[in-house]
Design a protein around this nucleic acid. Structure first.
Lengths: 182, 182
DNA sequence: CTGCGCATGTAATCGGTTACATGATTCT
DNA sequence: AGAATCATGTAACCGATTACATGCGCAG
């Protein structure tokens, strides 16, 4: 069983979800497309780690609501203490940043500006999610509370987005100002 | 030509390097193994984007020192302004963090502790590299100076490692204290 | 009326990892 | 004595992306 499979099981500890929802939820932690997730869910179902209930919908496609089984939970419990692999990061912008001296200040600025726009929307989204979770938890937070994992991950997503934006701002400041165009 | 190929060209703008050195240099920006890099360098050489000089060594394996050609530089210049793909991140620790409530506080702490150790060594390494570069540049830094790309990436690596450590510390504080064992 | 969100699935292809292969030196 | 570093390469495999396929409702 590969890491993404464990990841899907992990997401299901938060409650029953469809494949589509799992795909969306796992994105910030582990990039994966639906074409990879659906076949894995089918395998997990066949091996007894998850089960699903088909739900017919009018005016929308039918769906399958998956939940984790006792067997799946047991698999997660033995996976958690196992050696954790190092995070994988691949960022095209950083490759471009290394050789940014090859371009004009104009192109350099738009490169950074695009990244700023991207992380501003992420920051907005995650801040909102964090705020909602905070008032749902209402001060109650410990390792055993159900929203704990979600809480620490959202906090991380928010501060990461902020750090990303700070770096972009700092780099922008180093770039020569173009008065005619900004 | 894929992103990694452009990445290799980008690294070569910093001067001639062996495949082995390129592999090490590109790691923090784009994870790749030597088995992927060597064949790509061969292709880039055949298409005229890079060239190499074979260097025989005694007491060490022979090597090939690659440098970027004018054609390669032209390819980079037209790549930089093209749409930049979103960064790809896959972190097994975050998947485990989501369902950390399934384990005991003890396992949870060791999960975080391993990550702390990892990023402490990264922070040390990058801080040192940044310090060296800073006194080599000696106050001189602008878009056109040769170490510019390196400088902004090292600064980023340092502050990213710090942010990572801060998050780990914050999470540790939320975990129940185990007085008998710490 | 075009595109997006919901919702699932398969097939072809590309990108990336693991394993195999070699070999001297230096550190522990 | 065994592991790590330097240094290159190939082959097999697995993981991930892109493209193909369907279909309705709703917003711009």
């Amino acid at each position: 069983m590969n890491t993404l499979s464990y990841g899907l099981l992990a997401m299901l500890t938060g409650g029953p979800r469809t494949g589509y929802e799992l795909m969306q939820q796992i994105q910030p932690l582990w990039r994966a497309k639906h074409s990879q997730i659906y076949p894995l869910l089918a395998k997990l179902e066949q091996s007894g780690s998850v089960r699903f209930v088909p739900v017919a919908q009018k005016e929308k496609p039918d769906k399958k609501i998956y939940s984790i089984t006792e067997q799946g939970l047991a698999e997660l419990r033995e996976w958690i203490p196992r050696t954790t692999s190092e995070p994988v990061k691949r960022d095209e912008l950083l490759l471009k940043a290394y050789c940014v001296a090859l371009t004009d200040p104009f192109t350099a600025k738009s490169l950074i500006q695009n990244r700023i726009t991207l992380y501003q929307s992420k920051l907005e989204k995650y801040s909102q999610m964090l705020a909602e979770l905070k008032n749902k938890l209402d001060g109650e937070l410990s390792l055993t509370s159900p929203g704990f994992g979600n809480y620490i991950l959202l906090q991380r997503a928010v501060s990461n987005s902020q750090a990303e934006l700070e770096w972009c701002g700092w780099v922008s400041g180093l770039l020569p100002p173009s008065p005619s165009n900004q």
